[in-house]
Write a protein that binds this DNA or RNA. Sequence first.
DNA 1: ACCTACCTGGCC
DNA 2: GGCCAGGTAGGT
Length: 276
Amino acid sequence: MPELPEVETVVRDLRAAVVGRRVVGVELLRDSIVRYPDGAAFRKLLLGAFLANVERRGKFIHLGLGSDGGTALIVHLGMTGHLDVVGRRASLRPHTHLRCRLDDGRELRFADARRFGRVLLGPPDWLRSSGVLPPLGVEPLSADFTPAALDAVLRSTRRTLKAALLDQRGVAGLGNIYVDEACFVARVRPQRRCQRLTRAERARLHAAIVTVLERAVANRGTSIEDFRDIWDAPGNNQEELRVYGRAEQPCLRCATPLRHAVVAGRGTTWCPSCQR
DNA sequence: ACCTACCTGGCC
DNA sequence: GGCCAGGTAGGT
């Protein structure tokens, strides 16, 4: 479900909803969603924590616990993960795995049907250096994401463009929807080999990644099936998708039927005429 | 640089 | 019943 724009939407809403609150109760309904430390230690460390800030890194949500130097409650939503902030007595959505009671009477809840999502607790830098968290590449909406930074990612691999852009170690936060959308905007086929892209194509890709992600953030994410913000409202970016989910339909630029195939193990849609 | 596994649910 | 799904992680 969630790629950078959906995670960013959740982060911004969480910031307004939980910063300044204290965790006064922790109920872990399924230990296996905690990646680090074990369930008992996780619960003990989170209980009483002060929620000082909320940040995003790639597709990870960091809820900074101001109490202790740099420790954060870290959430990855996987495919179907969902966070919400609701009244304590609100009915539990199916597959709720963690309930954090807050000092204002509400609860921060994590639910995830497929259980590809995870929660962790610890200092992010330490978790990363010790291999608990994976390495992440450049943030595509930061000043670090220059055309040269994308060039460095694309020139270092012999894989397809699709595979390279999905790899979180290169550019952090892209997923299946926005890779296809950016490739369409840049008029480059996802199955192209990175090394064979021209300088002009790499420059178009850089610009396309930024505009596609910025527009999706402005639209509060894409809700095709599962994605909902912490208030359970869908995003609006599904209206803006030009290729994802439109296989066989006419290209919005040239009316050629869009093609669909598996590339880098993922369903991929592109225009055989506009995209080279 | 690939492939498969991990899960559940929804659709055909 | 089989196939597909917005994501990784681990093994070859």
